[in-house]
Computed example of a mutant assay.
Amino acid sequence: MKRFAFVAATAVLGLAALAACGSGDGTTTPAAAPQSQSSTTPNPSAAPKLATADVANFGKVVVDGNGRTLYVFDTDTTSPSKSNCDGECAALWPPVKAGTAAPQLDGVDASLVGTVTRTDGSKQLTLAGAPLYQYATDTQPGDGKGQGVLGTWWVVGADGKKITTAPAAGDTGNSGY
């Protein structure tokens, strides 16, 4: 019964995220919701960090300076880079802020790292042109709960390519999927 309740709650959360991640008219709206407290760069002038770590059964994926798994979104574009996650979507999927200093890199090729200007004017880090995000439900380093959400959110490898490996059954970092 607990598993059914969890799956049902996950489905409701997923539907809410789907509704939040697009206005339906092809436009985006400025982010109005505050960013997650565990934002990648709490100090806007601080240099963000991108590194790699083994997460679940996905292999080496890109993480932030706190070890939180980073994701890419299928509806974003890479050439040119454009984020299509604003407002409520960005509250659930906080963008990785660029800061004003060059990012610190560990295991990530500097030639693949860039930035994109979001609709609210803030700068977001990109990898191989893809805007990078956290998932608000990932609370600890190594969590990968956002993998495959709505079939559009994916962990990302150091090469900037999305990893579509399904979470392992019983994986506590990815349960419910």
Rank of each mutant, 00 (worst) to 15 (best):
P95R: 08
T29P: 05
G14Y: 01
W154H: 13
L50I: 07
A168G: 11
G129Y: 06
R68N: 06
A101G: 05
T40W: 00
D25R: 06
T152S: 15
P42I: 09
A136C: 05
A168P: 03
D54V: 14
P48F: 08
V62F: 03
G99M: 10
T29M: 12
D54L: 13
V156E: 01
G87S: 15
G148H: 02
Q140N: 11
A19C: 07
G148M: 10
N43H: 11
V116T: 14
P103D: 04
K123D: 06
Y135I: 14
D159N: 13
T117K: 15
T165S: 08
D54S: 13
I163M: 02
A136G: 09
T75G: 01
D76L: 03
F73L: 12
V63D: 03
L150F: 14
S175L: 11
L132Q: 01
K2T: 13
V62Y: 02
D143E: 12
Y71G: 01
N43P: 02
D138V: 13
A31M: 03
V61M: 06
T77P: 06
V12C: 04
S38K: 03
G22S: 15
A136Q: 12
A9Y: 01
G170C: 11
S45H: 08
G146R: 00
G22T: 15
Q37E: 14
L92R: 00
F73H: 02
A20I: 04
K97A: 15
T78A: 15
D109C: 09
K60I: 05
Q37D: 15
T40K: 00
D120R: 00
A51I: 10
D86E: 15
P80D: 10
A47H: 03
A102C: 08
P95S: 10
A11K: 11
V96P: 04
R68F: 12
T152F: 09
A51D: 13
A166R: 04
T28H: 01
P141W: 00
T77L: 09
A101T: 08
A136M: 14
G142A: 13
C85F: 02
P94Q: 03
F6V: 14
E88A: 14
G129E: 07
L127D: 04
T27N: 13
R3L: 13
D143L: 05
K145D: 02
P141D: 00
T27F: 12
K49Y: 02
S83W: 01
F58A: 12
P48S: 07
F6M: 09
S36T: 11
A136Y: 11
K162G: 13
L13F: 14
F73Q: 01
T41M: 04
P94N: 08
V96S: 07
D159H: 02
S39V: 10
A53I: 06
V7Y: 06
N84P: 02
T172Q: 09
A101N: 09
Q147Y: 07
G114D: 07
E88C: 07
P48C: 11
Q147H: 10
N57K: 01
F4N: 05
W154S: 06
G170Q: 10
T10W: 01
Y133H: 08
A53T: 07
